[in-house]
C-alpha cells in the first residue's frame, strides 16, 4: 500500500477571522466558508507545486450549513426579499467551493455532514485509488447562538485543516486507523508551537 503523508495542519477559530487578509470579497463569505478558507490558508502550503486538477478537497461540517440557514430564514420578510448571497451559502459545500475558487483547485470534491471521523479514511481512499495526488481535508464546526437555540447545541466557530499527499515529505505518515482529524490537527499544531 502506497504511503500517504501529512504535509501540514492548522486550526483556526472565530477569534482569528478579523486578522485574515484573504481578498476584498472575504467579507461576503458566510462564517463557515471564512473559517474553512482561513484554515486552508494557514496551512502555508504552495498548491502551485501540483497541478490544480490533481488536488481534491474533502470537507465535513458538523452542523451542515444550519447556522447560515437560520440567518437566511431570519431575513425572509425584509423589504426586497431574503439575501441571494446568503442563499448561496445555505449549503455546506459552499465552503468547498470557496476554497476551490481561492486556490484554483479543480480536482474532485467530497463534502459530508457530521463529525470528523469520515474525512481521513475517504481522503485516503481518494488518494490510494489515484483520484488525486493530494487532498485538502477540512473539518468545520460552526453553530451560531441563534442556530444553537434551534438545535439545542452549544455555540462554536472553528475549522481544522490538514493537507495529505501521496509519498510526500511531511510531518508524518497517515496511519490506517487515523480517524480523529480534529485531535490530530491540535496535536500537530501544539508540536509545531513547542518546536
Amino acid at each position: 500500500m502506497s504511503e500517504i503523508s501529512i504535509i501540514a495542519a492548522s486550526t483556526v477559530t472565530a477569534a482569528d477571522l478579523p486578522l485574515a487578509r484573504l481578498g476584498q470579497r472575504f467579507g461576503r463569505l458566510d462564517q463557515q466558508s471564512q473559517l474553512a478558507l482561513l484554515a486552508v490558508a494557514s496551512l502555508n502550503v504552495n498548491f502551485d507545486e501540483l497541478a490544480g486538477d490533481r488536488i481534491g478537497i474533502c470537507l465535513a461540517a458538523s452542523a451542515g450549513s444550519l447556522s447560515t440557514d437560520v440567518n437566511f430564514w431570519n431575513g425572509r420578510d425584509r423589504v426586497g426579499g431574503p439575501s441571494p448571497t446568503l442563499f448561496a451559502y445555505t449549503l455546506p459545500s459552499a465552503a468547498v467551493g470557496e476554497v476551490a475558487i481561492h486556490f484554483r483547485l479543480t480536482g474532485p470534491n467530497l463534502c459530508f455532514v457530521g463529525d470528523d471521523q469520515v474525512i481521513l479514511p475517504e481522503a485516503a481512499d481518494l488518494l490510494r485509488r489515484g483520484g488525486a495526488e493530494a487532498c485538502v481535508c477540512i473539518f468545520c464546526e460552526v453553530v451560531t447562538p441563534e442556530c444553537g437555540r434551534v438545535i439545542s447545541a452549544p455555540p462554536v466557530a472553528a475549522a481544522h485543516a490538514l493537507f495529505l499527499k501521496n509519498r510526500g515529505e511531511g510531518i508524518r505518515t497517515l496511519r490506517e486507523f487515523d480517524r480523529d482529524m480534529k485531535a490530530l490537527c491540535a496535536l500537530i499544531f501544539q508540536t509545531k508551537s513547542a518546536g
Binding site: 476584498q24 425584509r78 426586497g80 426579499g81 439575501s83 441571494p84 448571497t85
Partner: peptide, 17 residues
Amino acid sequence: LGLDSIDALELVVLLEK
C-alpha cells in the same frame, strides 16, 4: 470593483430596500 452576478442580485435587493 470586480463584482459578480450574485452581487448584482444583492444590488437589486438594495435598490428595493
